[in-house]
Design a protein around this nucleic acid. Structure first.
Length: 779
DNA sequence: CAACATCTACTTTTT
DNA sequence: GTAGATGTTG
């Protein structure tokens, strides 16, 4: 055991460190780690970049590293900052550390998601950014409603400039760490004729008035505090002796800046920061993640040690070969070669062509039942889809089969309407100035308070610069409102006063139940005849039950905003259905990947919006999907898929062409119709029977190749005049020109009349159509 | 002000 | 095909 580092007298660091006097502890952890993993665990001092391929034991390294730091007494639990992206990952790390060091995680207060740690820090210094420490955390729903109010106040037509779109802009800015004053006017021009910057400033002001912060603020305002108050930052420099970041490839600029500020306590070359990631699994570019963060880590922290974990312990050789071969088609990557640990080749990767998504569901259901009969557990199987609408078909099929399944992801518990309503009541009790909560529930259940009355309340509140509840108190003393509304509102504030009073004596979960009953909210759903109302009542019960686990109402509300993710009961044996995104970090014996069709996967929108960079991200998504499988991998292609209610012929995904032929086994379901499918074709030929069918010569493929040549980068992002990050964007120049004669599989020949990215408007005999350029060729 | 009917736009991924 | 959002009517 290394000599222990003397610790300055510091505030209570929690229970963990007190318990290790076991000299053998370290060697016990290190057992079973390979040389690289061990190196990553033991290289505690100085910057470290761990490039961990899929299935190479990344989480194990992280948790062992923390355990090692703790048991070697290099730091106490409270001195380690350890950030993840998802609550799931944070929870898993806590469990595994607890398992390793045999203690509870009470001593690791700074292990959590970026957002929860950001919130924690921000609450301690809220007054520095004009908030109180009990500020509310807005979710997307509140955010949209607030934006709508602002748009209305500015007389901006909501039809033309939807609130959602502005929310997207806001998100983008906040992800890049931009305050209203940092936004360049050019970017503002896209929305409401340049009013976007002002709207952003107004929005932030409104948040301050409401004593609220949105998700982005949890980091952005933290950064602001750090920058404006070096003393505060210094406090964290002293506190955090070690920093660890999971899934670094998913970090955005704001997160990057936040980390960089926190790491500045020491010269960069001595910072004890360890980031773990895999550039090949970067799949969140669309929400601002910058793969470049990981690519430039060595520049940020000169002398950083780089360790590659390339030994895969998860998948069979065939699966690994398929994944490696596919991802090799990406240009922008650091390049790793995954190697099996001398494992078996295993089954080949099955590729099945089916007629449509219904047959796809039938066929997969069938195979699952076969596997089940052979003794495989449903828990070991998963269906990973590109888009959530694909899930329904499987659910329907599995219901008729009586096959147990569970959907992971989907709408979160706290995003359900009834939960949000209930929470609004509770929020308002905890904090009467929460106007958004007030507006949400004044008329839920229906109380005869309509838009006109609410408008009066709102205007009065704004004029008097008081919260809406106070405005109500004032108005009920006047003749401003009709008698009916007046008495209703008087009754309502009376009830809230009553509840607030009771909240001091009654346990919060009991109070919650009383509030729901007395407000008439429970009754509202009891009266409701729609089929989902029993479920809603059930959810409300679940909400009240879950509150028991928390110390206080405040603690509960914080938890629900940031952490409440559904931990789906693993108890029952069931097939998992989820999106590829939510599958990251998981593994299953058998993985089904349906819907490998152009347009769906790679998703058309990714291609349209981000060109080749988008394609590469889709390919990484495919890579993530393939590498989830331990022993058995099944892909499928539907020849027809219904999109927006109409049937469309589908073209097999180009990703299928990128799998090595020798590990793939094409299975024919025998239901292929008229020339589609694989009958009589070469084994590795996945394109349909169209005239442009030759492998690697599809127009889309050629275009992708052509575009590799003409890279084009947008202006790189700079902050403080320094290059922060630059995404690889290779543009989407079209191989076609207006006037070109082209041939389309379905519409025949036509003339190009307009080009918009890779979407072409073409006059066919059948009329003018918008089509994707990968569906046509020059005529 | 609420209920109903109609219309529409929407379907990538989420802390 | 669906679920929201809007508009119209009572």
């Amino acid at each position: 055991m290394p000599p222990s580092v003397p610790l300055p007298d510091r505030q209570r660091a929690g229970a963990i460190t007190g318990q290790f006097n076991r000299p053998a502890a370290d060697s016990a952890f290190l057992q079973g780690l390979n040389a690289e993993q061990r190196d990553a665990v033991l290289s505690t001092e100085g910057p470290l970049l761990v490039l961990a391929g899929a299935g190479t034991g990344k989480t194990r390294v992280l948790t062992t590293r923390i355990a090692h730091i703790l048991t070697s007494r290099r730091a106490r639990g409270g001195e380690i900052l350890s950030v993840t992206f998802t609550n799931k990952a944070a929870r898993e790390m806590k469990e595994r550390i607890a398992h390793l060091v045999g203690a509870t995680v009470e001593g690791m207060p700074w292990l959590g998601t970026f957002h929860s740690i950001g919130a924690r820090i921000l609450r301690r210094h809220a007054e520095l950014v004009g908030l109180r420490s009990d500020f509310t955390i807005l979710d997307t729903d509140d955010q949209i409603r607030l934006i709508k109010q602002l748009l209305e106040a500015e007389n901006i037509d909501e039809k033309r400039w939807p609130a959602r779109q502005f929310a997207g802009l806001l998100d983008g800015w906040k992800n890049r760490g931009l305050m209203p004053s940092d936004v360049v006017p050019a970017e503002s021009a896209f929305f409401a004729n340049g009013k976007a910057i002002k709207l952003y400033a107004d929005y932030q002001q409104r948040l301050r008035d409401l004593n609220a912060a949105d998700f982005g603020d949890l980091l952005l305002l933290c950064i602001d505090v750090f920058r404006q108050h070096p003393d505060v930052l210094a406090e964290y420099h002293r506190r955090f002796r070690y920093m660890l970041v999971d899934e670094y490839q998913d970090s955005n600029i704001a997160q990057y800046l936040w980390l960089r500020l926190l790491a500045q306590g020491k010269p960069a070359s001595e910072a004890n920061i360890c980031v773990v990631g895999d550039d090949d699994q970067s799949i969140y570019g669309w929400r601002g993640a910058e793969v470049d963060n990981i690519l430039r880590f060595e520049k940020d922290f000169p002398g950083a040690k780089v360790i590659r974990l390339e030994r895969n312990y998860r998948s069979t050789a065939n699966i690994l070969a398929a994944a490696s071969h596919l991802i090799a088609n990406n240009e922008s990557r650091l390049g790793k070669t995954l190697q099996t640990d001398g494992g078996v080749a295993g089954e080949k990767v099955g590729v099945t062509s089916v007629w449509d998504s219904e047959e796809e569901a039938r066929q997969i259901g069938q195979e699952i039942e076969d596997l089940q009969r052979r003794g495989e557990s449903l828990n070991s199987m998963a269906i990973l889809v590109r888009a959530s609408f694909q899930m329904r078909e499987f659910e329907e099929r599995f219901i008729t089969l009586g096959l147990n399944y569970r959907v992971i992801g989907g709408p979160r518990f706290y995003e359900r309407r009834e939960i949000r309503d209930a929470l609004a009541y509770l929020r308002l009790i905890a904090n009467p100035t929460d106007d958004l909560a007030f507006e949400r529930i004044v008329n839920v259940p229906k109380r005869g308070i309509g838009d006109t009355t609410i408008k009066v309340l709102f205007d009065t509140a704004r004029h008097q610069k008081v919260p809406m509840v106070n405005a109500v108190r004032m108005l009920v003393e006047t003749e401003e409102l009709k008698p009916k509304q007046r008495s209703t509102l008087r009754g309502l504030v009376g009830q809230f006063d009553d509840w607030a009073e009771r909240s001091r004596s009654v346990p919060h979960h009991e109070l919650a139940q009383q509030v729901l009953d007395e407000s008439g909210y429970t009754e509202m759903w009891q009266q409701d005849k729609s089929p989902d109302s029993p479920g809603r009542l059930e959810n409300l019960k679940e909400l009240v039950r879950s509150m028991e686990e928390f110390e206080s109402l405040g603690g509960f509300l914080e938890h629900i905003a940031l952490v409440m993710d559904r931990d789906s009961g693993e108890a029952e044996d069931a097939v998992s259905i989820m999106t590829l995104h939510s599958a990251k970090g998981l593994e299953f014996d058998t993985v089904f990947l349906p819907g490998w069709e152009e347009g769906l996967f790679p998703h058309q929108r990714a291609l349209d919006e981000s060109g080749r960079a988008g394609l590469e991200e889709e390919r990484r998504l495919a890579y993530v999907g393939l590498t989830r499988a331990k022993r058995r991998l099944r892909l499928s292609v539907a020849q027809n898929r219904r999109i927006h209610g109409l049937w469309q012929a589908a073209i097999p995904s180009r990703f299928l062409d990128e799998l090595p032929a020798d590990v793939v086994e094409v299975k024919d379901t025998g239901s292929a119709y008229g020339g589609y499918g694989y009958g009589g074709r070469a084994a590795n030929r996945f394109s349909t029977a169209d005239p442009f069918d030759s492998l690697y010569e599809t127009p889309g493929w050629q275009r992708a190749k052509a575009q590799q040549a003409n890279r084009r980068s947008p202006g790189p992002t700079t902050i403080d005049g320094e290059l922060v990050a630059r995404s690889v964007d290779l543009g989407s120049g079209s191989a076609y020109r207006v006037g070109d004669t082209v041939v389309h599989l379905k519409f025949g020949s036509g003339v190009v009349v307009a080009i918009e990215g890779n979407k072409l408007s073409i006059d066919f005999e059948a009329g003018r159509k918008k089509v994707l350029d990968s569906f046509i060729r020059k005529g």
